[in-house]
Design a protein around this nucleic acid. Structure first.
Lengths: 138, 138
DNA sequence: TCCCATTTGTGCGTATGTATC
DNA sequence: GGATACATACGCACAAATGGG
């Protein structure tokens, strides 16, 4: 139950609840989050408040909203591995909309950026990709 | 000027404008973005709409809101470099609020996560940190 | 094809709180 | 204390897409 008198904003409390459900495994990858209308009733708040809570989870990459189907849990580790070579640099930042579309990324997913020693840059979706310096040996 | 009849939502158009100003260098790191009230007047929209636009830029890590001082441009490359060793893996994801606070990160900034070959994980703020496999030679 | 219910997207207005200057 | 500016939260309305009958 959320507490309207708490210092913590109601939408943050709702986000906390849902996040805990996801991280604990009570809600898993692909599960549907209750509809906004449903969450309004459950928590006794306005739709504005519920939507802010969902926004929080979106920006954390924990849910994907597929309008008007619903909101679904997104929680899976990277599956692809990109090889690093000596001197390559790796950094991260959020994509701008153009980059998001280009790489078919959802909201709340950061870019993994590799700068090769020749200066060329490669960008990967952070939810599907990890980088690794060739496993000992090579 | 934004177009209310466009397919692109007004708040997205406003976000596009501000983003373009930032990426072009017309607004640079530390600059103050016009106040919400000001943006309402400039674009002839409600505060709700302006705030959604700012939310977009926040989630892209392009601005930092310091209430109630104003909204400021945040646009600087990583300054710290963490050394990678053979076999280390690098990935990224958005932090949850606890992690954000722990590492003193702003909204819209992803985590840079390094998994060492012994399984230990290290987390760094993505806006200040890059990883590099020892520059050729080592 | 069409209608309808559901669900999310966008946008308006309003009100109040709180921190900064 | 007052002015400014962002934060939170309410309500309402309509649009658009989806899925089912």
């Amino acid at each position: 139950m959320i507490d309207p008198t708490s210092d913590r904003a109601q939408y943050r409390q709702i986000a906390d609840d849902l996040r805990a459900a996801i991280l604990s495994g009570r809600l898993t990858h692909g599960d549907r989050v209750p509809s906004e209308e449903r969450l309004c009733q459950e928590h006794g708040v306005s739709r504005t408040t519920v939507r802010k809570a969902i926004d929080v989870l979106k920006s954390e990459g924990l849910v994907e909203v597929r309008a008007p189907r619903g909101t679904f849990v997104r929680n899976a580790p990277p599956t692809e591995t990109v090889q690093l070579r000596r001197g390559d640099r790796v950094r991260t930042r959020m994509p701008i909309p153009g980059e998001r579309q280009e790489l078919d990324m959802r909201e709340g997913v950061p870019l993994l950026i590799i700068t090769r020693t020749d200066g060329k840059e490669e960008q990967y979706p952070g939810d599907r990709t990890q980088a690794q310096q060739g496993p000992a040996g090579k």
